[in-house]
Amino acid sequence: MKVCIRGAFALVVLTATQAAYANSGTINFTGSLNAATCTVAPGAGAGGSGQNIDVAMGNVALADLSTGSGSDFATTASFSIKIDCASGMTGLNTVKMAFDPRSGSGVDAEDPRLLRLTGTGNAGNATGVGIALINSANTVLNLNAAAAIASPLSVTGDAAIADLSMRAAYVATNATPTAGSANATLPFTLTYE
């Protein structure tokens, strides 16, 4: 009997000892800073001024909501954002727009690919709906997975311009969406490569 208990105890100690080992490593950050002087402005289909881009989604009937599966986007708002860099662009050829939904409206709880509407749960606001960003390949960008949109830079000397085009659509996130205000905010960051 003592042998069995000692053997079981030794196995537990050996297992606990192995679980206590840890690995360590190093995270190396690499990159560069550029002296680019770029401006952002609303392009076709967008309003606003400067870095504040306004996209009018329109008044969409609940019956016309997309499901977000495949390329089912019945009603979309096409828009673009213009990038104009006066200098500092030598050697760069792409601009990427990354999104930070958590600093804005957040991601939708039922479909985290989508942007959550502001005021969800408050009287007068739509429910069961999110906003999808759709790229040129007609695919919903997964906002929960750090999706980005890229565009080539048209570089002339040290200056460059670009046009980031996309679409947005209201998407039903459950079987019983309700009508109401359907607004959202989505901060973005531009990087140049």
Results as ranks from 00 to 15, higher is better:
V155K: 07
A86V: 13
N138K: 10
T39L: 14
A159D: 05
T39Q: 13
G48I: 03
Q51N: 15
N183P: 05
A132R: 03
G45Y: 00
V60M: 01
L92N: 10
S181W: 09
K82I: 10
T37W: 00
L14I: 13
M57I: 04
A168C: 09
G128I: 09
M57L: 14
S66A: 13
Q18R: 10
T17C: 12
T37H: 06
S69A: 12
A109Q: 05
S87H: 05
A160K: 09
P42C: 02
I53W: 02
I5C: 06
C85A: 03
V95C: 03
S66N: 04
G124C: 11
L143H: 08
T185K: 14
E193I: 15
A46I: 00
A109E: 07
S71G: 08
T94N: 13
A175D: 15
F9R: 10
T156E: 13
G50S: 07
N59S: 13
F99S: 04
A147G: 15
A137V: 09
A123E: 12
A16Q: 10
N144T: 04
Y21T: 13
G121S: 09
I81E: 06
L62K: 00
L33P: 08
G119N: 11
S154F: 07
R167C: 11
T94S: 13
A44E: 02
G48M: 05
T17N: 06
Q18Y: 05
N93P: 00
N183W: 05
E110N: 10
T75A: 04
T15K: 08
L114P: 07
N28M: 14
N183H: 10
V40D: 01
V55R: 05
A20P: 03
L65V: 01
N59Q: 07
R102Y: 05
M57Q: 09
T26A: 10
A147D: 15
T127L: 11
A16I: 08
N122V: 08
R102N: 09
G106F: 01
I81N: 03
T26I: 12
G157C: 11
D64C: 01
A182H: 11
N125L: 02
A36I: 08
V3I: 13
G106I: 02
T127I: 08
V140Y: 01
A98K: 11
P187G: 11
I53R: 04
A172F: 08
A132S: 04
I5Y: 07
G43I: 02
P112I: 09
L33G: 13
D54M: 12
A36N: 04
A169S: 15
N122R: 09
G50C: 06
V129R: 08
G7M: 15
K96S: 15
N138M: 15
D158T: 07
P177A: 14
L133E: 10
T178H: 06
A10F: 12
D84C: 03
A74L: 07
T173L: 03
C38F: 03
G47H: 01
P177G: 12
G130A: 14
S66E: 06
A35H: 06
L164C: 10
K82L: 14
M97A: 14
A179V: 10
S151Y: 13
A172Q: 10
I131K: 01
T185W: 02
G48F: 02
V13F: 11
S181P: 04
M166V: 11
V107R: 08
P101K: 03
G7D: 15
I161K: 14
G128Y: 06
C85H: 01
